[in-house]
Design a protein around this nucleic acid. Structure first.
Lengths: 98, 98
DNA sequence: AAAAGTGCTTTGTTTTTCAAAGTTAAATAG
DNA sequence: CTATTTAACTTTGAAAAACAAAGCACTTTT
């Protein structure tokens, strides 16, 4: 037997970062505000988790406009998709025994 | 759309507690030592996570003997099984979109 | 001009994690 | 029979992470 948790990615230990990634996997782009409302977070809390994901290069920011109003959106990167998938595979392997 | 992380159990945010539960789901009883070696943890760290799971009544302790040597083993409770399953269902629901 | 919204950053508190060392009791080695 | 080792903890303390609240720059709406 081998350590069942060794292949889990530490970045995805956080429910919030898991939630962000799971949303970005199915939506090409999501705004800061939508993430905030969906996950029911304060600005600061969300911003810092997004920062962590950005540092890891798992997500990308796009600063743009909707009309003339600023709008920041986020999208998943190829690396992020890969890391997220690897994490889910590790999770699945861990619990497949069920 | 609703908050995708609302149904995740906070207790299982920890990779270690996840690992313990996943091991106890497939093994009726596991010793402290086996858990420690499998998950590569220090005594104190493992003990405190086991404590958290015990407080939640997700696992049960059995103090017994192997010959005349003490041996502490842990097993999952019905409540623990249920909570773990609910967590996995929530996880699956969250990522099934993939 | 005032109020409100967007997307942050900063600050400080609370919570969580974890390692290290100490502890008790039994087992084994010398 | 004394010394060391092992099992399973508890306690202590430090480091890291999570989080809320407030502040801020800029813009839009009223």
């Amino acid at each position: 037997m081998k350590n069942p948790i060794a292949d889990l990615n530490k970045i995805f230990d956080s429910r919030i970062r898991l939630g962000v990634m799971s949303m970005l996997v199915v939506n090409d782009e999501i705004s800061f505000n939508d993430l905030k409302q969906m996950l029911e977070l304060t600005d600061g809390n969300l911003a810092s988790h997004l920062n962590t994901l950005e540092q890891a290069e798992f997500i990308k920011v796009h600063k743009g406009f909707i009309g003339r109003k600023t709008s920041t959106t986020y999208s998943i990167t190829a690396l992020g998709k890969q890391a997220f998938k690897a994490h889910l595979d590790a999770l699945e392997k861990m619990i497949r025994k069920l």
